[in-house]
């Protein structure tokens, strides 16, 4: 590609500004977490004067952060795994069978993505209260209710992406497995799933991230004992007297697992997006 002479300069300047915009908050988060309280209360300082790890140990005591952390971990992992299992079966049906209602199913599932969350938040809340009463268990405020809710949030995208992945696995492969005596489910589990593993991992990460970052439903459907990081941290940061150094340290710590997972697997996510977008 012949590039005009100004392009390298434009590239450096534009990408530089974009990098500054993108990375400044990350820098602020990391450096403020290392400052003592008095240094985050006055005027902002680009370079920390005193460096201390105090906030990383204090934050666990100011709010029950460890408790929120465990709640988030439980809810996000279970909903991610369950969502992917459900999505694998559904995507297999859509990819390999031409059944009546296939098109409607795909469109309907995807279109749930556009529902304003606020529309079904309250009815869902009522369903969980009433269903819980009918079954004699407390669903509202429980982790189970949150897990079921979150798993449907990532389901549409997961199905869509996995259909793309499964389509790229040659049907001849699972036909061969069928000749060898596996049923369709056997062919799915033994041939298609291993071949589409990158996609499945990417979708799992996506589902985990979705649950880990959700705020709206968590703010209504959890109580003190099931509170997740999303709600706990938000409350932490809107107190009257905010310990910004601790809040930044906490933000940093809760971000590390998802960011690391995402960055390690971004290659697969890009592949998945590509596979889905081709169609």
């Amino acid at each position: 590609m012949r590039e005009p002479r100004w392009l390298p300069w434009a590239r450096v300047i534009f990408l530089g500004l974009l990098g500054l915009f993108t990375l400044t908050p990350l820098y602020v988060m990391a450096t403020s977490a290392l400052k003592p309280l008095r240094d985050v209360q006055g005027d902002f300082n680009w370079i920390p004067v005193t460096i201390t790890l105090q906030s990383f140990s204090d934050m666990w005591r100011t709010v029950p952060l460890a408790h929120y952390f465990v709640n988030s971990l439980v809810v996000s992992s279970i909903s991610a795994v369950a969502s992917v299992v459900v999505a694998v079966f559904a995507a297999y049906a859509v990819s390999r069978y031409r059944f009546r209602g296939r098109k409607i199913f795909s469109v309907a599932v995807l279109s749930t993505q556009m529902f304003p969350g606020i529309l079904f938040l309250l009815p869902l809340f009522m369903i969980f209260v009433n269903l819980g009463n009918a079954l004699g268990v407390q669903l509202y405020g429980s982790r189970l209710a949150l897990i079921i809710t979150y798993l449907t949030f990532s389901l549409p995208f997961s199905i869509w992406m996995l259909v793309g992945y499964f389509d790229s696995v040659p049907a001849a492969l699972d036909e061969a497995a069928q000749v060898d005596g596996s049923g369709p489910i056997g062919a799915l589990l033994r041939v298609v799933v291993p071949a589409a593993m990158p996609g499945i991992i990417a979708v799992t990460i996506y589902a985990f991230m979705t649950a880990w970052g959700e705020v709206l439903f968590a703010s209504v459907m959890t109580d003190e004992s099931t509170r997740t990081l999303a709600v706990g941290l938000q409350a932490y940061a809107t107190q009257n007297d905010v310990y910004w150094n601790q809040v930044m340290a906490a933000s940093l710590v809760v971000s590390v697992p998802v960011v690391a997972g995402f960055l390690l697997l971004q290659r697969y996510l890009v592949q998945g997006l590509t596979a889905g977008a081709v169609k």
């Binding site: 705020v215 999303a230 910004w244 930044m248 940093l252």
Partner: peptide, 18 residues
């Protein structure tokens, strides 16, 4: 460049509010 998208929403937004 992908980090802001990977970050949990609240962590990024809380940093901005600071």
């Amino acid at each position: 460049f992908l980090v802001p998208y990977a970050l949990p929403v609240y962590a990024g937004v809380i940093t901005w509010s600071f």
